[in-house]
Simulated scan of single mutants.
Amino acid sequence: MNRAPPRALIRMSATAVSAALLAVAASCGARADDSASLLKAMTEYTAAQKSITATFDSDVEIITPDLQKIQFTSSGQLRMARPDKLRIRRTGGYADVDLAYDGKTVSLYGNNAKAYVQADAPGTIDQLVDTIQAKTNAALPGIDLLLSNSFDVLTSDVIEGYHIGQGVVDGVECEHLAFRGRDTDWQIWIQAGAQPIPRKYVITSKTVAGAPQYTLRIKDWKTEAIADADAFAFKPPEGATKVGLDSDVMVEFDEVPAGTTSGAKK
């Protein structure tokens, strides 16, 4: 027969939980001062790398009108050569997209739509990202980790930050940092040691009911020079059609189905 727990036990449990919460809060407060220095070390490390290749998995959440949370998953590859070469391929259940930038022209190909868009964009990767975000309002979550001024961009809206402690991502020991902003909160797991590589990045939207998140997990990080001369050259596949940014087929380039609303943005 089930019996109600003694009142004394309930009080003791509540006290233990309260003590644990206070201990966590005190621990976070003690580590608050070094969250910025750990983040700064990561951004300086990534900015100093002339070449970066990596693979990634990403999850984006949306909230339906009846408040159901749905998650969409994709994977991809990144190749970057500073200051002006970038290639990102992302494949998911609803998108198969290839972005190529050779320092002069940016090309975006959607394999599902068998269509591509192109634009002249002479300059650097940083300038390209600024242009894309200004003209298309695209969030491009995760790209801010690789900009030359990444620290300034990441902390531009930060109200407070904490060094939560240690964590393990894909078997790698990491420093776990958490930051609060006005519209979004975000967390990052940075590989511990001499190579402070970003391993996991989570953005939580606070302005959307249900607080949807965007999660990025980075793997296979390498900094060797990219030997492939055509790594950043875009050649339209046979049968592909060139379209404008205002074309209806652009919906096929998104990683969530048409008619849904993206969740976390930063």
Results as ranks from 00 to 15, higher is better:
Asp248Glu: 14
Thr261Met: 05
Ala264Met: 10
Gly92Tyr: 15
Ala211Lys: 00
Phe72Asp: 10
Asp228His: 00
Ser37Glu: 14
Ala36Lys: 08
Ser148Glu: 15
Pro198Ala: 09
Arg79Leu: 11
Ile52Tyr: 04
Asp220Ser: 06
Val208Gln: 09
Thr241Val: 09
Ile159Trp: 01
Leu177Arg: 05
Ala258Glu: 10
Asp84Gln: 10
Asp33Ala: 06
Cys28His: 08
Gly142Trp: 11
Gly161Ala: 02
His163Trp: 03
Asn111Trp: 01
Ala138His: 09
Asp248Asn: 13
Leu9Lys: 07
Asp33Ile: 07
Lys104Glu: 12
Ser27Phe: 00
Ser148Val: 15
Thr207Ala: 05
Ala115Ile: 15
Ala41Phe: 08
Gly161Gln: 09
Gly193Ile: 11
Gln49Ser: 08
Met12Ala: 03
Asn149Trp: 03
Ala47Asn: 12
Ile88Leu: 07
Gly93Ala: 05
Asp34Phe: 06
Ala194Asp: 15
Phe234Thr: 07
Val168Cys: 02
Gly93Glu: 14
Ala115Glu: 13
Thr184Ser: 06
Gly210Glu: 12
Ile159Lys: 07
Ala32Val: 11
Val97Tyr: 11
Asp230Glu: 15
Ile63Asp: 04
Asp185Asn: 10
Ala30Phe: 00
Asp98Cys: 06
Asp248Thr: 15
Gln191Phe: 07
Lys85Ile: 13
Lys266Cys: 15
Gly210Phe: 08
Gln187Pro: 13
Thr124Ser: 12
Leu99Val: 03
Tyr214Thr: 08
Ser18Tyr: 14
Ala225Gly: 04
Ala225Cys: 02
Ile10Gly: 02
Asp98Thr: 13
Arg7Tyr: 14
Ala4Gly: 03
Ile10Pro: 06
Leu38Asp: 08
Val117Ile: 01
Arg180Lys: 12
Ser35Ala: 02
Phe234Glu: 00
Gln77Tyr: 04
Gly181Arg: 07
Met250Phe: 12
Ile52Lys: 11
Leu39Ala: 04
Arg87Ile: 06
Gln118Lys: 15
